[in-house]
Design a protein around this nucleic acid. Structure first.
Lengths: 252, 252
DNA sequence: AGAGAAACTATCATCCAATGATAGATGGTG
DNA sequence: CACCATCTATCATTGGATGATAGTTTCTCT
Protein backbone atom coordinates (compact mmCIF):
# COMPACT_ATOMS: atom_id res chain seq x y z
CA UNK A 1 0.00 0.00 0.00
CA UNK A 2 1.21 3.45 -0.81
CA UNK A 3 2.06 6.16 1.65
CA UNK A 4 -0.29 8.53 -0.14
CA UNK A 5 -1.66 11.25 2.08
CA UNK A 6 -5.05 10.53 3.54
CA UNK A 7 -6.04 14.16 4.02
CA UNK A 8 -7.24 15.40 0.67
CA UNK A 9 -6.13 14.36 -2.76
CA UNK A 10 -3.58 17.01 -3.40
CA UNK A 11 -0.43 16.26 -5.29
CA UNK A 12 -1.63 12.86 -6.22
CA UNK A 13 0.58 12.42 -9.26
CA UNK A 14 3.84 13.14 -7.51
CA UNK A 15 2.88 11.19 -4.42
CA UNK A 16 2.16 8.16 -6.53
CA UNK A 17 5.46 8.42 -8.36
CA UNK A 18 7.31 8.60 -5.05
CA UNK A 19 5.32 5.61 -3.86
CA UNK A 20 6.58 3.72 -6.89
CA UNK A 21 10.17 4.68 -6.16
CA UNK A 22 9.92 3.69 -2.53
CA UNK A 23 8.26 0.44 -3.36
CA UNK A 24 11.24 -0.33 -5.60
CA UNK A 25 13.52 0.76 -2.77
CA UNK A 26 11.97 -1.76 -0.42
CA UNK A 27 11.97 -4.52 -3.00
CA UNK A 28 14.61 -7.19 -2.67
CA UNK A 29 14.85 -7.66 -6.42
CA UNK A 30 13.39 -6.56 -9.75
CA UNK A 31 9.64 -6.01 -9.79
CA UNK A 32 7.21 -6.55 -12.63
CA UNK A 33 4.83 -3.81 -13.63
CA UNK A 34 1.93 -5.67 -12.06
CA UNK A 35 3.90 -6.16 -8.85
CA UNK A 36 4.50 -2.46 -8.58
CA UNK A 37 0.85 -1.73 -9.31
CA UNK A 38 -0.28 -4.08 -6.57
CA UNK A 39 2.37 -2.97 -4.10
CA UNK A 40 1.69 0.72 -4.59
CA UNK A 41 -2.05 0.19 -5.00
CA UNK A 42 -2.24 1.83 -8.42
CA UNK A 43 -4.02 1.10 -11.64
CA UNK A 44 -1.84 -0.80 -14.06
CA UNK A 45 -2.11 1.91 -16.68
CA UNK A 46 -1.09 4.57 -14.20
CA UNK A 47 1.79 2.44 -13.04
CA UNK A 48 2.95 1.95 -16.59
CA UNK A 49 2.94 5.65 -17.38
CA UNK A 50 4.70 6.53 -14.16
CA UNK A 51 7.32 3.83 -14.43
CA UNK A 52 8.07 4.60 -18.06
CA UNK A 53 8.54 8.20 -17.18
CA UNK A 54 10.93 7.28 -14.39
CA UNK A 55 12.79 4.99 -16.77
CA UNK A 56 13.12 7.81 -19.28
CA UNK A 57 14.74 9.92 -16.59
CA UNK A 58 17.00 7.18 -15.30
CA UNK A 59 15.40 6.83 -11.88
CA UNK A 60 14.25 3.35 -12.79
CA UNK A 61 15.90 0.78 -15.03
CA UNK A 62 14.26 -2.08 -16.83
CA UNK A 63 15.91 -5.48 -16.91
CA UNK A 64 14.49 -8.69 -18.29
CA UNK A 65 13.39 -9.68 -14.81
CA UNK A 66 11.51 -6.48 -14.15
CA UNK A 67 12.09 -2.95 -12.94
CA UNK A 68 14.56 -1.71 -10.38
CA UNK A 69 15.93 1.61 -9.22
CA UNK A 70 18.23 3.28 -11.71
CA UNK A 71 21.62 4.95 -11.31
CA UNK A 72 20.24 8.48 -11.27
CA UNK A 73 19.09 8.01 -7.67
CA UNK A 74 22.78 7.73 -6.86
CA UNK A 75 23.30 11.16 -8.35
CA UNK A 76 20.69 12.65 -6.08
CA UNK A 77 22.41 11.03 -3.12
CA UNK A 78 25.69 12.49 -4.29
CA UNK A 79 24.08 15.90 -4.42
CA UNK A 80 22.93 15.38 -0.86
CA UNK A 81 26.22 14.29 0.68
CA UNK A 82 28.30 17.02 -0.91
CA UNK A 83 25.86 19.73 0.13
CA UNK A 84 24.39 18.63 3.41
CA UNK A 85 25.95 20.45 6.32
CA UNK A 86 25.52 17.64 8.83
CA UNK A 87 26.95 15.04 6.46
CA UNK A 88 30.07 16.99 5.63
CA UNK A 89 30.68 18.13 9.20
CA UNK A 90 30.08 14.71 10.70
CA UNK A 91 32.36 12.63 8.51
CA UNK A 92 35.74 13.91 9.77
CA UNK A 93 34.52 13.79 13.36
CA UNK A 94 33.43 10.18 12.93
CA UNK A 95 36.74 9.34 11.33
CA UNK A 96 38.63 10.62 14.33
CA UNK A 97 36.20 9.03 16.74
CA UNK A 98 36.54 5.64 15.11
CA UNK A 99 40.28 6.05 15.02
CA UNK A 100 40.62 6.64 18.76
CA UNK A 101 37.95 4.19 19.91
CA UNK A 102 38.58 1.58 17.21
CA UNK A 103 34.79 1.22 17.08
CA UNK A 104 32.26 1.92 14.37
CA UNK A 105 30.64 5.33 14.62
CA UNK A 106 27.65 6.74 12.78
CA UNK A 107 25.27 9.64 12.48
CA UNK A 108 21.59 9.40 11.67
CA UNK A 109 18.64 11.74 11.35
CA UNK A 110 14.94 11.37 11.78
CA UNK A 111 12.70 10.97 8.77
CA UNK A 112 9.06 10.47 9.60
CA UNK A 113 8.72 7.43 11.83
CA UNK A 114 12.13 6.17 10.81
CA UNK A 115 15.72 7.27 11.02
CA UNK A 116 18.19 7.32 8.17
CA UNK A 117 21.88 6.63 8.45
CA UNK A 118 23.67 9.49 6.77
CA UNK A 119 27.29 8.82 7.76
CA UNK A 120 29.25 5.90 9.11
CA UNK A 121 32.91 5.11 9.65
CA UNK A 122 33.94 1.55 10.37
CA UNK A 123 36.06 0.60 13.35
CA UNK A 124 38.94 -1.82 13.69
CA UNK A 125 36.90 -4.97 13.10
CA UNK A 126 34.09 -3.79 10.86
CA UNK A 127 30.52 -4.93 11.40
CA UNK A 128 29.03 -7.19 8.82
CA UNK A 129 26.62 -4.61 7.40
CA UNK A 130 27.01 -3.83 3.71
CA UNK A 131 26.90 -0.22 2.62
CA UNK A 132 24.59 0.99 5.36
CA UNK A 133 24.54 4.66 4.39
CA UNK A 134 21.01 5.62 3.49
CA UNK A 135 19.49 2.69 5.28
CA UNK A 136 16.19 3.31 7.02
CA UNK A 137 16.00 1.90 10.50
CA UNK A 138 13.25 2.05 13.11
CA UNK A 139 12.94 5.03 15.40
CA UNK A 140 11.62 3.11 18.37
CA UNK A 141 14.52 0.75 19.00
CA UNK A 142 18.19 1.26 19.78
CA UNK A 143 19.73 4.64 19.25
CA UNK A 144 16.55 5.95 17.70
CA UNK A 145 15.28 6.70 21.18
CA UNK A 146 17.62 9.64 21.64
CA UNK A 147 15.80 11.39 18.81
CA UNK A 148 12.54 11.07 20.69
CA UNK A 149 13.94 12.66 23.81
CA UNK A 150 13.61 16.16 22.40
CA UNK A 151 9.91 15.76 21.70
CA UNK A 152 7.09 16.83 23.94
CA UNK A 153 5.37 14.25 26.11
CA UNK A 154 2.34 14.37 23.86
CA UNK A 155 4.40 13.63 20.79
CA UNK A 156 6.17 10.76 22.47
CA UNK A 157 2.84 9.36 23.69
CA UNK A 158 1.33 9.56 20.23
CA UNK A 159 4.39 7.92 18.76
CA UNK A 160 4.51 5.18 21.37
CA UNK A 161 0.89 4.28 20.72
CA UNK A 162 1.67 3.82 17.05
CA UNK A 163 4.01 0.97 18.07
CA UNK A 164 1.92 -0.92 20.60
CA UNK A 165 4.19 -3.88 21.13
CA UNK A 166 7.60 -4.25 19.55
CA UNK A 167 9.82 -7.25 19.89
CA UNK A 168 13.47 -6.41 20.28
CA UNK A 169 16.22 -8.53 18.80
CA UNK A 170 16.94 -9.93 22.24
CA UNK A 171 13.44 -11.36 22.31
CA UNK A 172 12.22 -8.92 24.92
CA UNK A 173 8.91 -7.23 24.23
CA UNK A 174 8.79 -3.45 24.40
CA UNK A 175 5.48 -1.80 25.11
CA UNK A 176 4.61 1.91 25.01
CA UNK A 177 5.45 2.16 28.70
CA UNK A 178 8.92 0.74 28.19
CA UNK A 179 9.56 3.14 25.37
CA UNK A 180 8.49 6.12 27.45
CA UNK A 181 10.71 4.99 30.29
CA UNK A 182 13.70 4.74 27.98
CA UNK A 183 13.00 8.19 26.61
CA UNK A 184 12.86 9.49 30.17
CA UNK A 185 16.24 7.98 30.88
CA UNK A 186 17.67 9.70 27.83
CA UNK A 187 16.36 13.00 29.10
CA UNK A 188 17.99 12.42 32.47
CA UNK A 189 21.32 10.99 31.39
CA UNK A 190 21.72 12.54 27.96
CA UNK A 191 22.63 9.23 26.34
CA UNK A 192 21.17 5.83 25.58
CA UNK A 193 22.88 2.49 25.84
CA UNK A 194 21.19 -0.18 23.76
CA UNK A 195 21.91 -3.88 23.98
CA UNK A 196 20.56 -6.31 21.40
CA UNK A 197 17.62 -4.11 20.55
CA UNK A 198 17.65 -3.82 16.79
CA UNK A 199 20.22 -6.50 16.13
CA UNK A 200 21.10 -9.46 18.30
CA UNK A 201 24.49 -8.98 19.90
CA UNK A 202 24.73 -5.33 18.92
CA UNK A 203 25.76 -2.79 21.51
CA UNK A 204 25.45 0.91 20.92
CA UNK A 205 25.92 4.15 22.81
CA UNK A 206 23.98 7.04 21.31
CA UNK A 207 23.83 10.78 21.94
CA UNK A 208 21.52 13.40 20.47
CA UNK A 209 22.99 16.12 18.27
CA UNK A 210 21.87 19.69 18.86
CA UNK A 211 22.52 22.55 16.49
CA UNK A 212 23.44 26.10 17.43
CA UNK A 213 19.80 26.91 18.23
CA UNK A 214 19.62 23.91 20.58
CA UNK A 215 17.29 22.16 18.16
CA UNK A 216 17.78 18.44 17.75
CA UNK A 217 19.42 17.73 14.42
CA UNK A 218 20.17 14.03 14.60
CA UNK A 219 22.13 11.58 16.67
CA UNK A 220 25.60 10.13 16.87
CA UNK A 221 26.63 6.76 18.21
CA UNK A 222 29.33 4.22 18.74
CA UNK A 223 28.37 0.67 17.92
CA UNK A 224 30.06 -2.62 18.61
CA UNK A 225 29.11 -6.16 19.54
CA UNK A 226 28.70 -7.79 22.94
CA UNK A 227 31.32 -10.43 22.17
CA UNK A 228 34.15 -7.93 21.79
CA UNK A 229 33.07 -5.09 24.08
CA UNK A 230 31.30 -4.99 27.43
CA UNK A 231 28.72 -2.30 28.22
CA UNK A 232 31.02 -0.90 30.89
CA UNK A 233 33.89 -0.70 28.44
CA UNK A 234 31.71 1.05 25.89
CA UNK A 235 30.58 3.56 28.52
CA UNK A 236 34.16 4.65 29.08
CA UNK A 237 34.01 6.28 25.66
CA UNK A 238 31.12 8.51 26.65
CA UNK A 239 33.28 11.62 27.18
CA UNK A 240 34.93 11.09 23.81
CA UNK A 241 31.58 10.62 22.09
CA UNK A 242 30.16 13.63 23.86
CA UNK A 243 33.08 15.72 22.65
CA UNK A 244 32.40 14.54 19.09
CA UNK A 245 28.74 15.40 19.40
CA UNK A 246 29.64 18.87 20.62
CA UNK A 247 32.08 19.39 17.78
CA UNK A 248 29.43 18.51 15.24
CA UNK A 249 26.69 20.51 16.90
CA UNK A 250 28.82 23.61 17.04
CA UNK A 251 29.26 23.61 13.29
CA UNK A 252 25.70 23.17 12.11
CA UNK B 1 6.46 4.67 -31.30
CA UNK B 2 7.36 4.17 -27.70
CA UNK B 3 8.16 7.52 -26.25
CA UNK B 4 5.98 10.60 -26.23
CA UNK B 5 4.17 10.80 -29.54
CA UNK B 6 4.67 14.15 -31.17
CA UNK B 7 6.56 15.65 -28.27
CA UNK B 8 3.39 16.55 -26.45
CA UNK B 9 3.33 17.59 -22.84
CA UNK B 10 2.82 14.26 -21.22
CA UNK B 11 3.77 13.58 -17.66
CA UNK B 12 4.33 17.20 -16.93
CA UNK B 13 3.83 17.05 -13.18
CA UNK B 14 6.35 14.34 -12.51
CA UNK B 15 8.84 15.75 -14.95
CA UNK B 16 8.71 19.07 -13.20
CA UNK B 17 9.20 17.51 -9.80
CA UNK B 18 12.24 15.65 -11.06
CA UNK B 19 13.52 18.89 -12.55
CA UNK B 20 13.25 20.44 -9.12
CA UNK B 21 15.17 17.60 -7.55
CA UNK B 22 17.91 17.73 -10.13
CA UNK B 23 18.19 21.46 -9.86
CA UNK B 24 18.79 21.00 -6.15
CA UNK B 25 21.27 18.27 -6.98
CA UNK B 26 23.29 20.65 -9.12
CA UNK B 27 23.09 23.48 -6.63
CA UNK B 28 26.18 24.19 -4.59
CA UNK B 29 24.13 25.25 -1.58
CA UNK B 30 20.61 25.87 -0.33
CA UNK B 31 18.23 27.43 -2.84
CA UNK B 32 15.36 29.78 -2.20
CA UNK B 33 11.95 29.03 -3.61
CA UNK B 34 12.36 31.75 -6.22
CA UNK B 35 15.79 30.40 -7.18
CA UNK B 36 14.31 27.00 -7.83
CA UNK B 37 11.46 28.50 -9.82
CA UNK B 38 13.87 30.41 -12.01
CA UNK B 39 16.34 27.56 -12.35
CA UNK B 40 13.68 25.00 -13.27
CA UNK B 41 11.65 27.52 -15.26
CA UNK B 42 8.48 27.04 -13.25
CA UNK B 43 5.81 29.33 -11.89
CA UNK B 44 6.45 30.24 -8.27
CA UNK B 45 3.17 28.73 -7.14
CA UNK B 46 3.91 25.49 -8.92
CA UNK B 47 7.35 25.42 -7.42
CA UNK B 48 5.95 25.94 -3.96
CA UNK B 49 3.46 23.13 -4.24
CA UNK B 50 6.03 20.75 -5.63
CA UNK B 51 8.73 21.64 -3.13
CA UNK B 52 6.39 21.40 -0.17
CA UNK B 53 5.31 18.01 -1.33
CA UNK B 54 8.89 16.88 -1.62
CA UNK B 55 9.60 18.29 1.83
CA UNK B 56 6.66 16.36 3.24
CA UNK B 57 8.17 13.18 1.86
CA UNK B 58 11.71 13.93 2.99
CA UNK B 59 13.21 14.32 -0.46
CA UNK B 60 13.85 17.97 0.24
CA UNK B 61 14.65 19.69 3.50
CA UNK B 62 14.13 23.29 4.40
CA UNK B 63 16.80 25.20 6.28
CA UNK B 64 16.85 28.87 7.09
CA UNK B 65 19.01 29.52 4.07
CA UNK B 66 16.70 27.74 1.66
CA UNK B 67 15.90 24.31 0.35
CA UNK B 68 18.26 21.41 -0.20
CA UNK B 69 17.99 17.71 -0.91
CA UNK B 70 16.77 15.67 2.04
CA UNK B 71 17.99 12.41 3.55
CA UNK B 72 15.39 10.25 1.84
CA UNK B 73 17.33 10.46 -1.42
CA UNK B 74 20.04 8.55 0.44
CA UNK B 75 17.55 5.79 1.10
CA UNK B 76 16.78 5.47 -2.57
CA UNK B 77 20.49 5.22 -3.27
CA UNK B 78 20.77 2.54 -0.62
CA UNK B 79 17.99 0.64 -2.32
CA UNK B 80 19.92 0.89 -5.55
CA UNK B 81 23.32 -0.30 -4.32
CA UNK B 82 21.98 -3.27 -2.40
CA UNK B 83 19.87 -4.44 -5.33
CA UNK B 84 21.76 -3.50 -8.44
CA UNK B 85 23.52 -6.43 -9.96
CA UNK B 86 26.39 -4.47 -11.46
CA UNK B 87 27.04 -2.57 -8.23
CA UNK B 88 27.20 -5.63 -6.04
CA UNK B 89 29.23 -7.66 -8.51
CA UNK B 90 31.67 -4.88 -9.25
CA UNK B 91 32.64 -3.90 -5.72
CA UNK B 92 34.63 -7.00 -4.74
CA UNK B 93 36.34 -7.05 -8.13
CA UNK B 94 37.35 -3.42 -7.75
CA UNK B 95 38.61 -4.12 -4.25
CA UNK B 96 40.91 -6.83 -5.50
CA UNK B 97 41.95 -4.78 -8.50
CA UNK B 98 42.88 -1.81 -6.34
CA UNK B 99 44.68 -4.09 -3.95
CA UNK B 100 46.97 -5.59 -6.60
CA UNK B 101 47.52 -2.42 -8.63
CA UNK B 102 47.52 -0.01 -5.69
CA UNK B 103 45.54 2.31 -7.96
CA UNK B 104 42.02 3.67 -7.76
CA UNK B 105 39.47 1.68 -9.73
CA UNK B 106 35.90 2.48 -10.61
CA UNK B 107 32.84 1.42 -12.55
CA UNK B 108 30.43 3.75 -14.27
CA UNK B 109 27.34 3.46 -16.44
CA UNK B 110 25.78 5.62 -19.06
CA UNK B 111 22.81 7.80 -18.21
CA UNK B 112 21.60 9.97 -21.05
CA UNK B 113 24.45 12.13 -22.25
CA UNK B 114 26.35 11.58 -19.03
CA UNK B 115 27.88 8.73 -17.11
CA UNK B 116 27.40 8.03 -13.44
CA UNK B 117 29.98 6.57 -11.11
CA UNK B 118 28.36 3.65 -9.37
CA UNK B 119 31.37 2.09 -7.62
CA UNK B 120 34.86 3.14 -6.70
CA UNK B 121 37.66 1.75 -4.56
CA UNK B 122 40.58 3.96 -3.65
CA UNK B 123 44.17 2.95 -4.26
CA UNK B 124 47.28 3.35 -2.13
CA UNK B 125 47.41 7.12 -2.32
CA UNK B 126 43.80 8.17 -2.76
CA UNK B 127 42.79 10.87 -5.20
CA UNK B 128 41.52 14.09 -3.80
CA UNK B 129 37.90 13.52 -4.85
CA UNK B 130 35.31 13.49 -2.09
CA UNK B 131 32.65 10.81 -2.12
CA UNK B 132 32.48 10.43 -5.89
CA UNK B 133 29.87 7.68 -6.00
CA UNK B 134 26.85 8.96 -7.83
CA UNK B 135 28.71 11.77 -9.48
CA UNK B 136 27.67 12.62 -13.02
CA UNK B 137 30.56 13.11 -15.37
CA UNK B 138 30.62 13.86 -19.10
CA UNK B 139 30.35 11.09 -21.63
CA UNK B 140 32.54 12.71 -24.24
CA UNK B 141 35.78 12.96 -22.31
CA UNK B 142 38.07 10.45 -20.64
CA UNK B 143 36.78 6.97 -19.99
CA UNK B 144 33.32 7.92 -21.20
CA UNK B 145 34.47 7.22 -24.72
CA UNK B 146 34.51 3.47 -24.20
CA UNK B 147 30.76 3.61 -23.68
CA UNK B 148 30.33 5.19 -27.08
CA UNK B 149 32.26 2.45 -28.82
CA UNK B 150 29.31 0.07 -28.76
CA UNK B 151 27.03 2.50 -30.55
CA UNK B 152 26.33 2.62 -34.24
CA UNK B 153 28.14 5.19 -36.36
CA UNK B 154 24.95 7.18 -36.70
CA UNK B 155 24.50 7.37 -32.96
CA UNK B 156 28.09 8.42 -32.43
CA UNK B 157 27.77 11.06 -35.15
CA UNK B 158 24.61 12.45 -33.64
CA UNK B 159 26.22 12.49 -30.23
CA UNK B 160 29.43 14.10 -31.47
CA UNK B 161 27.47 16.89 -33.12
CA UNK B 162 25.81 17.65 -29.82
CA UNK B 163 29.27 18.53 -28.45
CA UNK B 164 30.72 20.64 -31.22
CA UNK B 165 33.88 21.79 -29.52
CA UNK B 166 34.97 20.61 -26.10
CA UNK B 167 38.00 21.84 -24.24
CA UNK B 168 39.82 19.12 -22.38
CA UNK B 169 41.52 19.73 -19.06
CA UNK B 170 44.87 19.75 -20.81
CA UNK B 171 43.71 22.77 -22.79
CA UNK B 172 43.45 20.84 -26.04
CA UNK B 173 40.25 21.34 -28.03
CA UNK B 174 38.30 18.27 -29.07
CA UNK B 175 36.05 18.52 -32.08
CA UNK B 176 33.55 15.95 -33.36
CA UNK B 177 36.24 14.48 -35.58
CA UNK B 178 38.59 13.94 -32.66
CA UNK B 179 35.87 12.24 -30.70
CA UNK B 180 35.05 9.90 -33.57
CA UNK B 181 38.71 9.04 -33.98
CA UNK B 182 38.99 8.16 -30.29
CA UNK B 183 35.89 5.99 -30.51
CA UNK B 184 37.43 4.23 -33.49
CA UNK B 185 40.56 3.52 -31.51
CA UNK B 186 38.47 2.01 -28.73
CA UNK B 187 36.80 -0.28 -31.22
CA UNK B 188 40.19 -1.39 -32.51
CA UNK B 189 42.10 -1.73 -29.25
CA UNK B 190 39.29 -2.45 -26.81
CA UNK B 191 40.51 0.12 -24.31
CA UNK B 192 41.01 3.85 -23.96
CA UNK B 193 43.89 5.63 -22.33
CA UNK B 194 43.02 9.17 -21.30
CA UNK B 195 45.53 11.77 -20.22
CA UNK B 196 44.41 15.05 -18.66
CA UNK B 197 41.06 14.98 -20.40
CA UNK B 198 38.51 15.54 -17.69
CA UNK B 199 40.92 16.54 -14.96
CA UNK B 200 44.39 18.04 -15.34
CA UNK B 201 47.03 15.50 -14.42
CA UNK B 202 44.60 12.60 -14.36
CA UNK B 203 45.49 9.40 -16.15
CA UNK B 204 42.97 6.65 -16.72
CA UNK B 205 42.74 3.34 -18.51
CA UNK B 206 39.18 2.31 -19.29
CA UNK B 207 37.52 -0.82 -20.66
CA UNK B 208 33.92 -1.45 -21.63
CA UNK B 209 31.87 -3.97 -19.68
CA UNK B 210 29.74 -6.44 -21.61
CA UNK B 211 27.05 -8.59 -20.08
CA UNK B 212 26.26 -12.20 -20.97
CA UNK B 213 24.35 -11.10 -24.08
CA UNK B 214 27.34 -9.05 -25.27
CA UNK B 215 25.43 -5.87 -24.58
CA UNK B 216 27.42 -3.01 -23.16
CA UNK B 217 26.57 -2.55 -19.49
CA UNK B 218 29.06 0.04 -18.35
CA UNK B 219 32.78 0.56 -18.07
CA UNK B 220 35.59 -0.10 -15.66
CA UNK B 221 38.81 1.82 -15.25
CA UNK B 222 41.99 2.37 -13.35
CA UNK B 223 42.80 5.95 -12.58
CA UNK B 224 45.92 7.61 -11.29
CA UNK B 225 47.86 10.83 -11.81
CA UNK B 226 50.68 11.63 -14.20
CA UNK B 227 53.02 12.58 -11.38
CA UNK B 228 53.03 9.12 -9.83
CA UNK B 229 52.41 6.86 -12.83
CA UNK B 230 53.53 6.98 -16.44
CA UNK B 231 51.20 5.96 -19.26
CA UNK B 232 53.45 3.01 -20.04
CA UNK B 233 53.35 1.87 -16.45
CA UNK B 234 49.58 2.13 -16.36
CA UNK B 235 49.33 0.10 -19.57
CA UNK B 236 51.10 -2.81 -17.91
CA UNK B 237 47.95 -3.31 -15.85
CA UNK B 238 45.80 -3.84 -18.94
CA UNK B 239 45.69 -7.66 -18.60
CA UNK B 240 44.72 -7.36 -14.95
CA UNK B 241 42.02 -4.82 -15.74
CA UNK B 242 40.76 -6.93 -18.61
CA UNK B 243 40.49 -9.92 -16.30
CA UNK B 244 38.46 -7.84 -13.87
CA UNK B 245 36.17 -6.66 -16.65
CA UNK B 246 35.62 -10.25 -17.72
CA UNK B 247 34.86 -11.34 -14.17
CA UNK B 248 32.22 -8.67 -13.82
CA UNK B 249 30.71 -9.21 -17.23
CA UNK B 250 30.35 -12.92 -16.64
CA UNK B 251 28.16 -12.33 -13.61
CA UNK B 252 25.69 -9.82 -14.92
C1' DA C 1 12.36 50.46 16.25
C1' DG C 2 10.06 50.93 12.03
C1' DA C 3 9.86 50.88 7.06
C1' DG C 4 10.56 48.08 3.18
C1' DA C 5 11.62 44.03 0.82
C1' DA C 6 11.81 39.33 0.29
C1' DA C 7 10.21 34.67 1.23
C1' DC C 8 6.63 31.93 1.84
C1' DT C 9 1.53 30.71 2.13
C1' DA C 10 -3.28 30.59 0.82
C1' DT C 11 -7.25 30.93 -2.36
C1' DC C 12 -9.80 29.99 -6.51
C1' DA C 13 -11.73 29.76 -11.30
C1' DT C 14 -10.17 27.69 -15.53
C1' DC C 15 -8.60 24.15 -18.26
C1' DC C 16 -5.54 20.72 -19.57
C1' DA C 17 -3.16 16.67 -18.35
C1' DA C 18 -3.79 12.57 -15.50
C1' DT C 19 -6.88 8.91 -15.16
C1' DG C 20 -8.54 4.18 -15.91
C1' DA C 21 -11.21 1.06 -18.80
C1' DT C 22 -10.31 -1.40 -22.79
C1' DA C 23 -8.14 -3.38 -26.67
C1' DG C 24 -3.89 -4.66 -28.96
C1' DA C 25 0.91 -6.27 -29.40
C1' DT C 26 4.58 -9.11 -27.74
C1' DG C 27 6.90 -12.88 -25.70
C1' DG C 28 7.56 -16.80 -23.16
C1' DT C 29 5.86 -21.83 -21.76
C1' DG C 30 4.07 -26.37 -21.62
C1' DC D 1 -0.75 -24.30 -31.01
C1' DA D 2 -3.10 -22.45 -27.26
C1' DC D 3 -2.40 -20.10 -23.10
C1' DC D 4 -0.95 -16.85 -19.93
C1' DA D 5 1.55 -12.89 -18.48
C1' DT D 6 3.85 -8.63 -19.53
C1' DC D 7 3.90 -4.62 -21.58
C1' DT D 8 1.96 -1.04 -24.92
C1' DA D 9 -1.36 1.92 -27.07
C1' DT D 10 -5.76 4.57 -27.44
C1' DC D 11 -9.30 7.73 -25.87
C1' DA D 12 -13.27 10.07 -23.64
C1' DT D 13 -13.98 11.96 -19.19
C1' DT D 14 -13.06 14.61 -15.25
C1' DG D 15 -10.78 16.08 -11.43
C1' DG D 16 -6.46 17.76 -10.00
C1' DA D 17 -2.73 20.72 -11.54
C1' DT D 18 -2.13 25.31 -12.93
C1' DG D 19 -0.96 30.20 -12.39
C1' DA D 20 -2.64 34.84 -11.30
C1' DT D 21 -3.42 37.31 -7.23
C1' DA D 22 -3.70 38.54 -2.58
C1' DG D 23 -2.28 37.75 2.15
C1' DT D 24 1.07 36.69 5.91
C1' DT D 25 5.29 36.06 7.92
C1' DT D 26 10.17 36.87 8.26
C1' DC D 27 14.28 39.08 7.38
C1' DT D 28 17.13 43.37 6.48
C1' DC D 29 18.32 47.51 6.37
C1' DT D 30 18.78 52.51 8.16
Amino acid sequence: MGATTGGGNQGRTLDRALDVLECLERARGPLRLSDIAREADLHLATTQRTVNQLVRRGYVQQGNLGYALGPVVLSLAHGFVVNDRLSTVATPVLTELSSTTRLTSSVFVRSGDERILIARVSGADPLRYQFPIGRRVPLNVGGGKVLLAAWTDEEVDAFALRFPETFLASGRAQGPGDLKRDVESVRENGYYLAESERELGALSLSLPLYDAEKEIAGAINLVTTTDVTSPEELMTWLPELSRGAGAIGARI
